[in-house]
Design a protein around this nucleic acid. Sequence first.
RNA 1: CGGGACGUAGCGCAGCCCGGUAGCGCACUAGGCUGGGGGUCUAGGGGUCGCAAGUUCGAAUCUUGUCGUCCCGACCA
Length: 492
Amino acid sequence: MSKEITSRVVDYSQWYNDLIIKGGLADYSAVRGCMVIKPYGYAIWENMRDQLDKMFKETGHENAYFPLFVPKSLFEAEEKNAEGFAKECAIVTHYRLKADPENKGKLIVDPEAKLEEELVVRPTSEAIIWNTYKGWIQSYRDLPLLINQWANVVRWEMRTRLFLRTAEFLWQEGHTAHATKQEAVAETVQMLEVYATFAETFMAMPVIKGVKSANERFAGAEDTYCIEALMQDGKALQAGTSHFLGQNFAKAFDVKFTDKENKVDYVWATSWGVSTRLIGALVMAHSDDQGLILPPKLAPIQVVIVPIFKGEEQKQLIDEKVIIFQQQLKAAGVKVKYDDNDNNRPGWKFAEYEMKGVPVRIAIGVRDIANNVVEVARRDTKEKMSMSIDGLAENVISLLNDIQEAIYIKAKFFRDAHITNADNWEDFIQLLDVKTGFIAAHWDGTTATEDKIKELTKATIRCIPLNNAAEEGACILTGNLSSQRVLFARAY
RNA sequence: CGGGACGUAGCGCAGCCCGGUAGCGCACUAGGCUGGGGGUCUAGGGGUCGCAAGUUCGAAUCUUGUCGUCCCGACCA
């Protein structure tokens, strides 16, 4: 039919795009590299945002908002950060258009309206925020400063992909200031834990917590912690990062404080973020060839009710039953939709809600009413069962919990089955091509070796897992001494 | 920025080689029969063929230019 989805084995990329477009999450836009997030996709983002926001506030953070534009002189203050982002910045140079004298009805940039200083459209907000913090922090009494902002940022990527990498994207960025290094490191780790908990509990997506190698570190950070997830095609996806920034930004923006002993020192910083990329991760983590599979905890619609009827009389009978358990479900906090639209027939609706990944579907017709039951179908396994109308709400809620857990277990089983040890170069190369996934291998700890491996295989070090077991070994490439295995993978 | 593909109705496409006044499927509108896995019949509406020049009596079709999108790479969250 018109909404066929390309199968994963035929073309994984096309499958992913089909899910996004045909599932109604997003559309391409008139702007290169930028997408329109449609209501259904945005609803997922709202659910993610609301949950994360709650978790940020529970850990003591407050929201604020900083400007979209960063004066170039501020942007370049922290050298490494500026250098890291320089080649993907959009820059505002003028502030006015005027009528084109040679082309009626058209506009041109007014050359007279050139800005004294160019404005960088933020690719990240450290610069503007630290410039602001300078005025907010004088004493240890002003610390810690725990602020988050929900915003859009722009990174002029050469090649974009829906949700995974767009030129403009939505995210949150936390920026904190602390009196001591220990406290800042603790904050960095705490936020990584928040991200990991969110990914596993709400997205039902298992992640590996780790630290980035110097190569993959955020520009301007001392250490970058990350959560890494594995997609169904065996490629890794960085799902969130939490950076320990040391005193780099405090020094660049001259942010000092006086401690209890009246000594002056630079403050310690962290920043951490997750973006709409998480929606891409969510899609790829669970979905199948019939469409999206969304975890109940983030699904915009958790339960859809489809009436099966012939004529108004039957419809009314069904309505009477539905209204009762629909109310019970709503009262229990379940997001339920009763699709009694008469334009589409039941079969069409079944296919449509499967495409959209609604976790539970309830079908009810007069036949069911006679038996005091409904047909309940779960999206993840496509299993159908008959359930009594009595006590339906409790059973459906318990089913939603089962689904949440089942898709997590399935994803975790897949992920765990795709972490493989490699002890020599031949195995390493073969695993990358044949089995894919994470490869745990020894590495001599040098950037040169990491670069060489990337050049030869396109695999990068995704992370050095936290609480990694110490193990003596020989580097997969150079044979030099290594004290632990690190995780390699090809990544998005 | 390199390589490839493509711009024709809301969406997906055919027509182009060989120039002659635009078509198919889905969607849409009205009505009927239907209704437990993407139904069906009848009757309709909708297009400056991406844009701009050129060749020609005549251009969706040929030529040149231009803009844009997607896919694959290098870069990146």
